Amino acid sequence: MNENYLEVIKILSSKRRVNAFVRELSFEQIEQIISNLQDASVERIATLEKERQQEQERNEKLKTYIEMMKKDGIDVEDLLGATQAKGVERKDRLPKVKKEPKYEYTREDNTVAYWTGQGRTPKAIAQAIQSGQSLEGFLIQK
């Protein structure tokens, strides 16, 4: 929270500070502040009530699901264990195939590196292309 926000909370939380604050205001300003606070309060209460209602509905659904599972002979702990099982492989996913590098280049630190041609172009290759060299010059000879 920023300092101004904290200062407003400090003033509004103390009756003595509120009295000192409103002494400096016109009647119209006080009425406007009261109206704004009432509107904000009504909105906040409505939001809290809606959240409470959603939480209550969620809890009722959970109770219903638990009862359904009990009826079918499923224990909640069994369900949690099944969803958290380690090493469960997805059958619908193909294994990743490592691509063979197509290009060979020398880094700034004079180490040799390889690039498959996919993803971001390595800095050394990008600089060489900008200076007029061709990408084919980096192809690995097989």
Rank of each mutant, 00 (worst) to 15 (best):
V42M: 12
N2K: 08
V76A: 04
T83W: 12
A20Q: 09
S13D: 00
E3C: 02
E7Y: 13
Y105E: 01
N2T: 04
R52K: 08
F138N: 10
E100S: 15
D72Q: 15
R58I: 09
K15N: 12
Y114A: 04
A113P: 02
L79D: 05
V112G: 10
I140S: 07
S41H: 15
V97N: 05
K96I: 00
P122R: 02
F27N: 15
G119T: 07
E55P: 02
S26K: 13
S14V: 00
R44P: 03
F138Q: 10
V76F: 08
Q56D: 02
K142R: 13
A128M: 04
F27C: 13
Q118C: 01
D109K: 06
G117V: 07
Q84E: 15
A113D: 13
L25P: 02
V76I: 12
I66Y: 06
T111H: 00
Y105Q: 00
E49R: 14
N36I: 11
K10Q: 05
Y114C: 03
A46I: 04
Q130E: 15
K10P: 01
N4K: 12
I129E: 11
N19T: 11
E43M: 09
I9W: 01
L94T: 11
Q32T: 15
E104K: 10
I30T: 12
F138R: 08
S41W: 12
Q141H: 14
W115G: 03
L80P: 03
R17D: 11
I30L: 14
L25T: 02
G117E: 05
Q127G: 08
V18P: 00
E28P: 02
D78N: 07
T106R: 07
G73N: 13
M1Q: 02
V112H: 12
D72C: 11
E100R: 11
F21M: 14
L37W: 12
I129R: 13
K70C: 04
G117M: 02
A20N: 11
E7G: 05
V76N: 01
L48E: 08
V8H: 00
G132W: 06
I9T: 02
E108G: 05
Q84N: 14
K86P: 02
K61T: 07
A113T: 04
Q38K: 10
L25F: 02
N36S: 15
K91A: 10
N36H: 09
S131H: 03
A113W: 03
N19V: 06
V97C: 02
I129F: 08
R58V: 00
E136D: 14
G87I: 09
S134V: 09
S35N: 07
